[in-house]
């Protein structure tokens, strides 16, 4: 699959357009079902943009498999390892619609970068139960991992410099169209909400 590199206003390169996001999520939905071997996975989106992505994957699964996977939302604010180095953020809702014990749980997020968010998310999940398996699905893997964490389902592998900023915009949260942009920015900052 080739990814057209287009340049929008302000010379910020678009690396995934709305259609690319849609195709990636559809493919990931198929992979998730195949990887679940007949069991129904629980999709858990990480705030902020992981939540609508998880919902979209659930809709895609419903489209071809007929049944809708339960979708949860996870705020990892209470489990971060870098609380002291960032401003306090308001907590978003954490909701798991089903007991995750012994289930296949797929964590969903927009950008995988250092892996610290995912580590915190796994800690947060463990407070609710002991899943049989935890998998990770991300729209973009931009590299630069600081922890031994790898994704199971990836929309796009996007080699980046640490100084670049990957912006994901989704219609449910942001204005305009879906898309992924890469722009020069302050080192260590990733994601439209500044999460690493």
């Amino acid at each position: 699959m080739s990814w057209p590199l287009r340049v929008l206003e302000d010379s910020v390169p678009l690396v995934m357009a709305a259609a690319d996001v849609r195709k990636s999520l559809s493919r990931m939905a198929h992979e998730i079902v195949e990887g679940s071997r007949g069991e129904a996975p629980v999709l858990v989106g990480i705030h902020t943009r992981g939540v609508p992505l998880a919902r979209r994957i659930a809709s895609a699964i419903e489209g071809f498999a007929g049944s809708r996977a339960p979708v949860g939302a996870l705020d990892i604010g209470l489990y971060r390892d870098d609380l002291a180095s960032r401003p306090a953020m308001p907590l978003a809702a954490t909701r798991l619609p089903v007991d995750i014990t012994d289930r296949i749980v797929v964590l969903v997020d927009d950008v995988l970068y250092t892996g610290r968010t995912v580590r915190a998310a796994m800690d947060a999940l463990n407070a609710f139960g002991r899943p049989a398996v935890i998998r990770l699905a991300v729209l973009v893997d931009r590299g630069h991992r600081q922890l031994p964490i790898r994704p199971d389902h990836v929309g796009k592998n996007l080699p980046t410099a640490a100084s670049e900023r990957v912006s994901v915009r989704l219609v449910e949260i942001d204005r305009g169209e879906d898309g992924v942009w890469i722009e020069p920015g302050a080192p260590g900052i990733s994601g439209a909400d500044g999460r690493v």
Binding site: G77, L78, L83, A84, S85, R86, P87, A88, M89, L91
Partner: peptide
């Protein structure tokens, strides 16, 4: 407590 201590200030 989280608002006052759960961040860099």
């Amino acid at each position: 407590l989280f608002r006052l201590l759960g961040g860099s200030g």
